[in-house]
Computed example of a mutant assay.
Amino acid sequence: MDLREFVAGTAGGTAGVFAGHPLDVVKTRLQSGNGTGVGATAADCFRKLFVKEGVKGFYRGILPPIVSNAPVSACVFSSYGWALRLIHGNERQHEASLREVTAAGFAAGVVSSVIVSPTELVKVRLQTHSHGGGPAQAMASGSGLGKAGLGVVGETYQCVRQIVKEGGLRNLFRGFNQTLIRESLSYACYFGSYEATLRAVTREGEDPTTLGILLAGSVSGMVVWGPVYPIDVVKTRIQACKSSTPDGTWRCFQKILTSEGVGGLFRGFSTTMVRAVPVNAITFLVFEQVQKSLPK
């Protein structure tokens, strides 16, 4: 494991989580399904969330991604560097071809899905639960999350306990197949588009500028969601509901198409695209700057 990549990836990922979590909550609420109290549009959902739960509601479920950030970053950047060394001969992505960078990103996504799947399950359950009632609370009915005064750590612990109670430790990996598909494809696009954009805006022989890194990070964040967004919606539906949603990808996909049409597969897409710009711009900027400042 490259310690520099681990530290820089953790710093960048943590910064990205804090920057984008409010919009991630809105996206998850929209993805979880139609219903009174959620809001039909991102703006409506944002307003209702603020009125019912205040600022705290926008940071519901933030502990799992923060806690998982270090191991996920370690897995992503270590496996990415490992794959790049196998394919290209060294881990310096700026010297590898775009095809090699993309292949290494795919490998990193496969590895990261093992950690991402259970932490996102907990995050989705917490985000789709509302103390103010409504469909989000209905989805989590019987989950034991409605106890007042638990705090972030307490709510997270209660959520994990309930998930295990529902179906054992195996239940923590509900939605794993969908997460695996999303992670592998998204990281392939993520690293590939970032490197392609960075090379396009950086003069040969010069170091990337801050503006160039921000631009490349923004582009990679937007590019990554196009191919995988429908599978992300399916994953969210499967993870948010205990029994009313089929746990098979194709069956869930068909159910959404039948009841909501194609639009159902892109609920919350605009929110995700808006969120992708600052999150990934900040993530890559912090990652590049921290890695550059650390001794080799």
Score class of each variant (00 low, 15 high):
G134E: 04
D207A: 15
G268I: 01
G144I: 00
C159A: 06
G263C: 06
F58C: 05
K242V: 12
P64S: 04
R275N: 14
A216M: 11
R29S: 02
L257T: 12
R161I: 11
F176G: 05
T41D: 04
N177G: 13
N280T: 06
F176E: 01
C45A: 08
G151L: 09
G146P: 00
W250S: 09
E204N: 12
S186T: 10
Q162D: 13
E195N: 08
E91I: 01
A103N: 01
I87C: 08
E91C: 10
G217N: 11
A240E: 04
V286C: 10
A74L: 12
A15F: 10
V290G: 03
I163Q: 05
L185E: 05
T272A: 15
T36L: 15
T36V: 15
M1D: 12
G57N: 02
V262E: 15
G264R: 07
E195W: 03
D2K: 12
G109F: 11
G175H: 04
L121P: 03
V164A: 07
G16W: 11
S186I: 12
V114T: 11
N90R: 10
G12S: 08
T197L: 12
E120Y: 14
H88S: 02
F287S: 11
K52H: 15
G16C: 13
D232K: 13
N69G: 08
I66K: 05
G217Q: 05
G154E: 11
F266S: 02
T10D: 05
Q178P: 04
G168T: 02
P64V: 02
R161G: 09
I62F: 13
T245G: 06
G39Y: 11
V201K: 08
G226Q: 15
